[in-house]
Design a binder for these strands. Structure first.
Lengths: 139, 139
DNA sequence: ATTAGTGTACTATTATACTAACACACTATT
DNA sequence: AATAGTGTGTTAGTATAATAGTACACTAAT
């Protein structure tokens, strides 16, 4: 399996579970953690690991298939697309969406370009400090 | 009324409507468009303007009240809190959430700090170009 | 051939979101 | 006093999300 260990199964109740799991997989695709052509866990397997119903997992895979990211072989399993350019496509698309949503929200809150960059840099610094503390902890 | 003209009533189907409207109001509070102590439109009024059910609007106001942003006077209407510090509080909280969510998503996609800042700056430039074109159009 | 694991497809049930249409108590204005 | 506009509460119906359980056809390995 390999990548499934990192999966967590606590979902927020503000978004449909099947959508959260969908995003989970698109992230794995975007990061190249799942290779093109590679088999992904079966519906029943993932349902058990994520502690959701098999029908919910089926819906996730159905939508991923509808979007051309995976395809099924009846009786065998689901496989990530062989299209080599898909990883780049997914990554670029999702990053662009994230940036767009973020900018839209900050503009809606009345922030200007400079302030947005400032706030972001400030937060990045905090994350870095947090990482340093974690490293100290693990020694 | 004043601020209601900017309201749009097209909601995406991926998030509950009452939550989208909730966010709409928190943005107005954060930007200071609704002043402290000011009366906001009645449930029935807003339901008509946003073309949603009155029960949905009531839920929005109930949750805003639960979070201390507004309070009701029976038979009279709903009013934005008199707490002068609330505008700043809401603004800071929502901006922080936006930044956190954005960073989390970009990290999950495998982006590093420098790349994140680069992508953001790139997108900001595009927005600026778009604004310029709009200005030319309007002449 | 048998078996285990797979995708696929149903039915049924529960909870939530949303709409619809009321009824009632309160407030301000006339 | 009467009226219009308000918050509040209720009942009902529809659609979707999620769970639960079952059944069937296909594939690969034994």
């Amino acid at each position: 399996m390999g990548f499934v260990e990192n999966f967590t199964s606590d979902f927020d109740n503000k978004t449909p579970i099947y959508r959260q799991i969908y995003r989970l997989f698109t992230r794995l695709f975007a990061r190249g953690i799942i290779k093109t052509g590679e088999r992904i866990p079966s519906i029943r397997d993932m349902a058990l690991q994520l502690k959701v119903n098999a029908n919910t997992m089926q819906r996730v895979y159905q939508e991923l298939e509808r979007d051309g990211l995976i395809h099924s072989k009846r009786g065998t399993g689901y496989f990530f697309t062989e299209d080599e350019s898909m990883v780049e496509k997914v990554s670029v698309k999702m990053a662009h969406e994230a940036v767009s949503n973020f900018l839209e929200e900050m503009y809606a809150l009345g922030f200007k370009d400079e302030q947005i960059l400032t706030e972001l840099s400030k937060q990045i610094k905090l994350v870095k400090e947090g990482d340093k503390l974690e490293n100290i902890d693990s020694n």
